[in-house]
Amino acid sequence: MSQQVRGVVSTAKGAPVQVTTIVVPDPGPGEAVVRVQACGVCHTDLHYREGGITDEYPFLLGHEAAGIVEQVGEGVTEVAPGDFVVLNWRAVCGQCRACRRGKPWYCFNTHNAKQKMTLTDGTPLTPALGIGAFAEKTLVHAGQCTKVNPAARPAAVGLLGCGVMAGLGAAVNTAQVERGESVAVIGCGGVGDAAIAGAALAGATTIIAVDVDPRKLEWAKGFGATHTVNSRETDPVEAIRSLTGGNGADVVIEAVGRPETYKQAFYARDLAGRVVLVGVPTPDMNIELPLLDVFGRGGALKSSWYGDCLPSRDFPALTDLYLQGRLDLDAFVSEEISLDQVEEAFTKMHHGDVLRSVVVF
């Protein structure tokens, strides 16, 4: 029998979000209903509200979440009612060409729930990243539920569902930072700080944080940055080179998603170094680089999708590191808020006042 719960819905481009009643159907084959315990307010949700991803309004926002599986549909064996899970937006299919090549983190055919959650008048909702977790309960594909240690705090480990995993994975999975390497991270919001934390976990010895906001640079130190550069005051390329023996960093992670900062990343790396783009650009952005420089500098230019993560592998491992005190996920939680405060949280995020506001149910 379907359930009615409260959820945060975006009805039109740029309009303030609304807390309203939504209808969550019983899970069908391969689906699960999850009682949400916590959900982070991610910049991607703001992109949805602003029409920057699709125009399929109304949206049920929220995707960076943890909770308890309440019901499962026919054929579901990987999770059961009562399991504590972190939700992911890339439930791998196991059958596409990426999965068959043994690289499921590139899966080209990820799963979402087939049924739609709706408004009470029957209007179908588009769930953000196939999740829609600014709601007391949500319907997802069972493959989007990753079991983790239930001793973990939902507000902290839920952030693995998007931003923290994207940044940390950009360093560990995509860049494959090695012990003793130098890493620069341009953009020190939640994703950038997670990349700094990932570089520290991997054993980088020089970790340079670059941003225009002194507050964010101070926060970055807490995640493992050994040096900071205010790029409003200093040329970041020259600063990174001066901190790495004049050579440039072995790895530069761009966590902003703008052409000008990508160019900085490109020229701030050492010869044969790696550039990783994890910041999300908008469709109108273009970049121009001298092809001779692309050839002559060697190395690799990579994009990182969701930190190239495999949720079934990475979420439990990172949760264990958190519980062991080796990965401070609590430090990403700037504030805990109610469902009614999401619009206010968007304003704080836009002004750079928080790393993450987290809705706690």
Score class of each variant (00 low, 15 high):
263 K>C: 11
263 K>Y: 10
263 K>E: 14
263 K>L: 14
263 K>N: 02
264 Q>F: 01
264 Q>V: 12
264 Q>T: 13
265 A>P: 00
266 F>L: 13
267 Y>E: 09
267 Y>F: 15
267 Y>D: 10
268 A>W: 07
268 A>Q: 11
268 A>R: 07
268 A>D: 08
269 R>L: 07
269 R>Q: 10
269 R>D: 04
269 R>W: 09
269 R>K: 11
270 D>Y: 13
271 L>W: 08
272 A>S: 11
274 R>A: 05
275 V>W: 00
275 V>Q: 01
276 V>Q: 00
276 V>T: 07
277 L>G: 02
277 L>S: 02
277 L>D: 00
277 L>P: 00
278 V>H: 01
279 G>V: 04
280 V>D: 04
281 P>K: 04
282 T>F: 00
282 T>L: 07
282 T>D: 01
282 T>R: 05
283 P>K: 02
283 P>C: 08
284 D>I: 07
285 M>S: 09
285 M>Q: 13
285 M>R: 10
285 M>P: 03
286 N>K: 12
287 I>R: 12
288 E>L: 14
288 E>K: 11
288 E>D: 13
288 E>G: 14
288 E>R: 08
289 L>A: 08
289 L>I: 15
290 P>G: 00
290 P>H: 07
290 P>S: 07
290 P>N: 07
290 P>I: 10
291 L>P: 05
292 L>D: 03
292 L>Q: 03
293 D>S: 10
293 D>L: 10
293 D>K: 06
293 D>A: 05
293 D>T: 07
294 V>R: 02
294 V>Y: 02
296 G>I: 10
296 G>V: 15
296 G>D: 13
297 R>F: 14
298 G>F: 09
299 G>R: 03
299 G>M: 03
301 L>Q: 10
301 L>P: 01
301 L>Y: 05
302 K>Q: 12
302 K>M: 12
303 S>E: 03
303 S>F: 08
304 S>G: 06
304 S>Y: 01
304 S>L: 10
305 W>Y: 11
305 W>P: 07
306 Y>D: 04
306 Y>L: 13
307 G>R: 08
307 G>E: 11
307 G>V: 10
308 D>R: 15
309 C>K: 00
309 C>G: 06
309 C>D: 03
310 L>D: 00
311 P>I: 08
313 R>F: 15
317 A>Q: 14
317 A>V: 14
317 A>H: 06
318 L>F: 11
318 L>N: 04
319 T>Y: 00
319 T>E: 04
319 T>Q: 01
319 T>S: 05
320 D>E: 04
320 D>I: 15
321 L>E: 11
321 L>G: 15
321 L>K: 15
321 L>C: 11
322 Y>W: 05
324 Q>I: 13
324 Q>F: 06
325 G>R: 12
325 G>L: 04
326 R>P: 01
326 R>F: 01
